[in-house]
């Protein structure tokens, strides 16, 4: 599908643009989701574990572990499937139905490579970065909620988080992030590229991109847990 690029620097330029679109463009939503997700998880875990027999730091360790292993990568990427995926599919789909892709082809440009590659590479670089940010911020959200509600202090939270931290968990989280990044960008680019018809079909491709990416993410989530844990 991908042949030798026409001009390397043009591709690098486009990849940087896509990194900006995907990374910087999604930062705000990722920040909000991560903080709330950490905060809510903390409150709910505390609610479920309400017993004098359980040490407070346990709450911190459960929240930080589940954020890293599942919530930060999966929830972040499900949201990105909606935001980034629909954007990619509608952008490429519009180019398809308005013959811009034909214009690229007539010029002798490998249109699938030209359009999809910078998005896929941009996603593979930026989405794991967003996931790492999300991991940090969900712990921050957990700490804030713990303090604010008086459930546990930040020292207790961090003690629990530190004690249960395993480098392997971070590795696992990043494997998920890379996998989801590839799924979101490639599935969406594919649905955009294969659009045919008009504006209505662009909308349909965009929806399909989001649904298929989301399902593929959940499916691979299960597979990865099966293989790597």
């Amino acid at each position: 599908m991908f042949s030798k690029p026409e001009k390397r620097w043009v591709y690098i330029d486009r990849t940087v643009t896509e990194m900006n679109n995907i990374g910087v463009g999604s930062l705000a939503i990722v920040v909000i989701i991560a903080i709330f997700q950490g905060a809510v998880t903390t409150l709910q875990i505390a609610y479920q574990l309400i017993s004098p027999l359980i040490a407070k730091p346990v709450i911190g360790s459960i929240v930080s572990d589940s954020s890293m292993l599942e919530l930060a990568p999966t929830i972040t990427c499900l949201v990105l499937a909606g935001k980034v995926g629909s954007h990619i599919a509608s952008e490429i789909g519009t180019m398809r139905v308005s013959e811009q892709i034909d214009a690229l082809e007539v010029m002798g440009i490998n249109s699938s490579g030209y359009l999809a590659l910078p998005k896929i590479i941009g996603g593979l670089i930026m989405i794991p970065l967003l996931v790492v940010i999300s991991i940090f911020l969900s712990n921050l959200g957990g700490i804030i909620a713990g303090e604010a509600s008086g459930i546990l202090t930040s020292e207790e939270y961090l003690q629990g988080a530190r004690e249960s931290f395993l480098p392997y968990n971070l590795f696992f989280s990043l494997v998920k992030a890379f996998t989801y990044a590839f799924i979101i960008t490639s599935v969406s680019a594919f649905h955009g590229y294969t659009t045919s018809g008009g504006a209505l079909e662009v909308g349909a491709s965009s929806t399909k991109a989001v649904v298929y990416s989301a399902v593929a993410i959940l499916f691979s989530d299960y597979i990865l847990a099966q293989i790597l844990l």
Partner: peptide, 27 residues
């Protein structure tokens, strides 16, 4: 080959100048 499409098919994310410059950049 140059082609003028029925719907023009200009790249709408690029300015007029960048549209014309596009093939020069690539080739």
């Amino acid at each position: 080959i140059g082609m003028l499409f029925q719907g023009t098919a200009l790249f709408d994310s690029l300015s007029v100048e960048e549209n014309v410059e596009f093939a020069l950049k690539m080739f």
